[in-house]
């Protein structure tokens, strides 16, 4: 699992690679803590190399979404692989998270 965070003004680009499973979710949550507690209005997450997402991983996306929305910002997930997108679709996450 690898996370790269690039910050510019109130925009932040996060690149996730690898498997976001139960064990790596904790690490992801730790990495995202500054974003959760920050004030970035635009959060973009590049999922080109995201290979797997568990329900625990989804939870963190949900937490991020809630926090960003609470500060009148917007979170966008981009370049999801089809089977990952399917997970987001089935669980209804596509209804609350902006996925391109």
């Amino acid at each position: 699992m690898e996370f790269i965070t690039v910050k510019k003004d109130s925009n932040i680009l996060i690149t996730i690679s690898g498997r976001l499973d139960t064990s790596s979710s904790d690490e992801f949550l730790r990495e995202m803590t500054p974003v959760l507690e920050g004030d970035e209005k635009s959060v973009e997450i590049d999922c080109t190399n995201l290979e797997y997402v568990s329900s625990q991983g989804l939870r963190i996306f949900l937490m991020l979404q809630k926090k960003v929305v609470a500060r009148q910002g917007q979170m966008t997930l981009v370049n999801l692989r089809p089977y990952i997108k399917e997970v987001f679709h089935i669980t209804g996450f596509t209804k609350i998270i902006n996925i391109i």
């Binding site: 939870r59 949900l62 937490m63």
Partner: peptide
Amino acid sequence: NDNGMFVT
């Protein structure tokens, strides 16, 4: 639900 708990 602050910690993003959900159930399918």
